[in-house]
Design a protein around this nucleic acid. Structure first.
Lengths: 193, 193
DNA sequence: GTCTATAAGATGATAGAC
DNA sequence: GTCTATCATCTTATAGAC
């Protein structure tokens, strides 16, 4: 048995959202690619903001499933950061939706419906907190060099690392070269070890 | 005498573009705010892509005027980087269009008309080259510590710094807190000195 | 749950008068 | 250079049959 309709809708909406942004995709686009009629899409997600929120919520849940999976057991702080960066290297290289939905939506923030905006803001805060935890763990277990951090605490480093990864995705997309992301991310992780 | 019409159109289009993205603003928006009729806007910029290209071109020219002004004379490499970051701190804090047009357009890249896309890609390449130059100068004059760079050459550092600044803008917008940009940028510059 | 049909408004763009 | 009027198309969203 194939996927239930709402999931197929979310798959399409996610891909379109990551590629064209919130203002760059329409119910007609989603309907054509599922395929389904436009009213059928509205039946599952009455308003566009509902669809947007659902996409971001599912994205957030999956991302943190993956990140928390990487933290489980005795994974070192450095290994956790490597998992975070590796996740994005795979994504940027991937064919379908080679970009972080939340990074794109963050750029479009002022023109998003309030519920979507709240979801995106929540993702940024949660991600930064997760990164700060991983960095603190790395300082504790010795897998990250505290002296390499040069007077910056775990929270400041987490903010920097998150910005760096999002910015690297932006560069990769702007210059149409996924290798850009790789080089930036790899260099940074090496610098912290 | 006030500004010529094309400039007033570009001012409005720039503000709208930086706020809502390419797919998030319309000729009607621009016309209403200049103010002018829609056909009058089309008279100066026939197609939306013409308007987009003109905004980005003017933005690029002004940015590099400012950056090259900061490089003139005997400014140290570190002072040049500080000028780059200071430019963005001012921008992010500003009321009107608190975001880099090119960063937003980079996120929307796949849904942009080809001429706009080319302009954005050109900006990223030029900016990275300017930063690499400033960093090389800083290594030469001793204002930037080569050992703090940890095995990364000027080009790699330039790519990292550009990503960091764009990512910091994204974070500031996502969390609706300009201070986020400040803290990230200041910490990084301190780390390099 | 899915469809056809349709509404009410916005979109990028043009014709032609002044 | 600016306007009013208009175009074809697309937008989000609803009504109502099957």
């Amino acid at each position: 048995m194939p996927q239930p309709t709402p999931d197929r809708i979310l798959d399409c909406a996610h891909a379109l959202l990551a590629t064209h942004g919130y203002n760059g995709f329409s119910y007609a686009d989603v309907a054509r690619r599922v395929p389904l009629s436009k009213p059928a899409v509205h039946h599952h997600f009455p308003a566009k903001s509902d669809l947007g929120v659902a996409v971001v919520r599912r994205y957030r849940a999956r991302a943190f499933d993956l990140l928390d999976g990487a933290s489980r057991g005795r994974a070192s702080g450095r290994a956790r950061l490597a998992a975070y960066i590796g996740y994005w290297r795979d994504c940027v290289t991937a064919q379908e939706s080679p970009f972080c939905v939340c990074a794109l939506l963050a750029a479009e923030m002022p023109s998003l419906p309030a519920p979507v905006r709240a979801e995106v803001a929540g993702h940024f805060r949660a991600l930064q907190a997760w990164l700060a935890d991983a960095i603190r763990a790395g300082f504790g277990d010795g897998s990250l060099a505290e002296k390499a951090a040069q007077h910056r605490d775990a929270d400041a480093l987490a903010a920097e690392l998150m910005a760096l990864v999002h910015g690297a995705m932006l560069s990769a997309r702007a210059m149409d070269d996924p290798g850009v992301f790789d080089r930036i991310a790899a260099g940074t992780l090496r610098g912290l070890a």
